[in-house]
Amino acid sequence: MSDRLKALADAGVSIWLDDLSRERIESGNLAELVKETSVVGVTTNPTIFAGAIADGERYDEQVRGLVAAGHDVDKVIFELTTEDVRNACDVLAPVADESGADGRVSIEVEPDLANDTAGTIASAQALWAAVDRPNALIKIPATKEGLPAITAVVAQGISVNVTLIFGEQRYREVMDAYLSGLEQARDAGLDLSGIQSVASFFVSRVDGEVDKRLEAIGTDEALALRGRAAVANARLAYAAFEEVHASDRWKQLADAGATVQRPLWASTGVKNPDYPDTLYVTDLVVAGTVNTMPEKTMQAFADHGEVEGDKVSGRRAEAEQVFASLASVGIDFEDVLVVLEHEGVDKFKTSWTELVETVKGQMQQAAK
């Protein structure tokens, strides 16, 4: 086991792999990662599945069967992806049994439903039923329309990974949606201890957008602020998390058996090659959080990452100063958040289109 990854896990950070394929599952690679590198969870998205399906012959037999049965591309995608997530859940089931909170595998509702509350609820219900594993998480985007869907599915006992969170205010709304769902589940007599959730707060994309604006401003003062917004933003989010979980509202739910919706640092692969490739791991170490990493980032941390203690809690004032400095040079961070959410939804949809085209190609091959 990598000593550096073990040190990260020992610091209370749950290491999740942002990747999945049938090859990883059937070859034993996923089980090996769990055993050897402290991986205790998996996140997926349509781009990950598109890459896996395009590169892997292990899907061919199932695709041929589904094509022969006359299924359309949406049904084929649904069957292929839920099969992989179900099997990954089985690989990680011992972790879930041991830890309770970890051992989770995420699968995303259709991105085209990001602004459709009822459609998101129906998609989440269908995915939850198809995967049929207690350690699955259904990914729902934190759009305005996604928030009531989060409450509705949590109220039904469905575990969720809330994704596409960029700012503190929306994160507070996400936490409120989760707690509202738990309150409804409690009032309906459900066992709250079986409902799990993480809130995926995106990191590197924040620096990408802010840095672009700082470089357009071009002053020495502006350029000196590059690479500081994303970590500061995450620290503000964590301060909000601590505040909500110190409330009487949360205490009542915890007393009823509810589990914490842990902050999950997503988009932690560094986009700017000038920054340390482990920046969004080292600078976001705090116990009780999840960091989901592309394998490249995980390998980089295993090779040379450093755990320098808690780098997040108690840093609200420091983070607020970063944003005061950004505002002073002309950065409108509220506009940054609007742009990032719109781009995030668009990227989800583009990712889905990529998956659809990939699967269509496989279906055409299977029909020959």
Rank of each mutant, 00 (worst) to 15 (best):
A11E: 06
D18Y: 13
R24L: 13
L33N: 01
L33I: 02
K35G: 10
K35I: 02
F49L: 01
F49Y: 12
F49R: 08
G51C: 08
I53T: 09
R58G: 15
D60Y: 13
A68N: 09
E79F: 05
T81A: 13
V85R: 13
A93V: 05
D97R: 14
S99F: 07
V105T: 08
D112P: 00
A118Y: 07
A129C: 08
V131R: 07
N135Y: 08
A136D: 03
A136Y: 02
K144A: 14
K144F: 04
P148R: 02
G157E: 04
I158G: 04
F166Q: 00
G167M: 03
E173P: 00
S180G: 11
D187I: 05
S193H: 12
I195A: 02
Q196H: 14
S197P: 00
A199E: 03
V206C: 09
K212C: 00
R226E: 05
R226P: 01
A229S: 10
A232L: 01
A234Q: 02
A237D: 03
Y238Q: 02
Y238E: 01
A239F: 09
E242R: 11
E243P: 00
A246L: 04
K251F: 06
D255R: 10
T268V: 11
T268P: 00
P273S: 12
Y275F: 15
T278H: 10
T282Y: 07
L284F: 12
M298T: 12
Q299S: 14
A300C: 06
K311E: 02
K311L: 05
S328Q: 11
G330E: 06
D332R: 12
D346Y: 13
F348S: 07
K349D: 03
L355D: 04
T358I: 11
A367P: 00
A367S: 14
